[in-house]
Simulated scan of single mutants.
Amino acid sequence: MQIDDTDRRILRHLLADPGLATAALAERAGVTPATCWRRLDRLRENGVLRGQGMAIDWRALGYEIEVSLRFTLDKTAPRAFDDFIEAARGVPEVIQIQTFLGRVDVRLNMVARDMAHYQEVYRSRILTLPHIADIEALMHIATIKDSAGLPL
């Protein structure tokens, strides 16, 4: 889908403040509310906009530890990926699952309340996931940039 400068302005303002009402978004983007509504509707229909989501601040809920776990799977088992992902989905502390091509097959992001909670989850739920050939844990220290936006 091709977008023009008006679409880009609308998207920039929408990314900056996702909770804006259509009238306020239209005003900031320099278009009429009707034009803004039609453009947003077209962007949704073409899959550019996929709903409006909320971001959860896990730290505000008491989860102080975030860890990225990188796995290489034993791919001699025909269902290694499927079995691993199915089991990983059952771990409540896992907040993201990604698959890759390359040396790392799967990455899990998980949260824990503290180091004791992390150790308990790691030993009882993570190490028991099927088909693990290798695992590497990376402790999250700081987020430098976190943007879902594109350079519009």
Rank of each mutant, 00 (worst) to 15 (best):
62 G>A: 10
77 A>H: 15
27 E>G: 07
116 A>F: 02
52 Q>P: 03
112 A>K: 00
71 F>S: 14
56 I>C: 00
27 E>V: 00
5 D>G: 05
102 G>S: 01
133 A>K: 11
41 D>F: 10
82 D>Q: 14
53 G>M: 13
13 H>W: 05
76 T>G: 12
2 Q>G: 13
4 D>P: 06
85 I>H: 09
26 A>E: 03
36 C>A: 12
121 V>D: 05
73 L>H: 07
75 K>C: 07
32 T>A: 01
142 A>T: 15
3 I>D: 09
19 G>C: 06
37 W>R: 10
42 R>A: 14
36 C>S: 03
63 Y>Q: 12
93 E>W: 05
79 R>M: 13
71 F>Y: 15
25 L>R: 06
68 S>R: 08
30 G>Q: 04
9 R>Y: 00
75 K>L: 14
149 G>Y: 13
73 L>R: 09
65 I>G: 01
54 M>R: 13
81 F>K: 04
118 Y>F: 15
14 L>W: 05
72 T>Y: 04
65 I>D: 04
47 G>I: 11
30 G>K: 02
94 V>E: 08
76 T>M: 04
87 A>M: 06
103 R>C: 00
23 A>R: 14
134 D>N: 11
113 R>M: 08
150 L>I: 09
139 M>D: 08
78 P>K: 12
150 L>A: 07
59 R>C: 05
77 A>V: 14
120 E>Q: 14
24 A>V: 09
88 A>I: 02
109 N>R: 11
50 R>L: 15
101 L>N: 09
134 D>Y: 06
116 A>D: 13
13 H>T: 02
73 L>D: 08
131 H>M: 08
80 A>I: 10
129 L>I: 07
121 V>K: 05
29 A>E: 04
147 S>H: 08
147 S>C: 11
29 A>S: 15
28 R>L: 14
105 D>W: 09
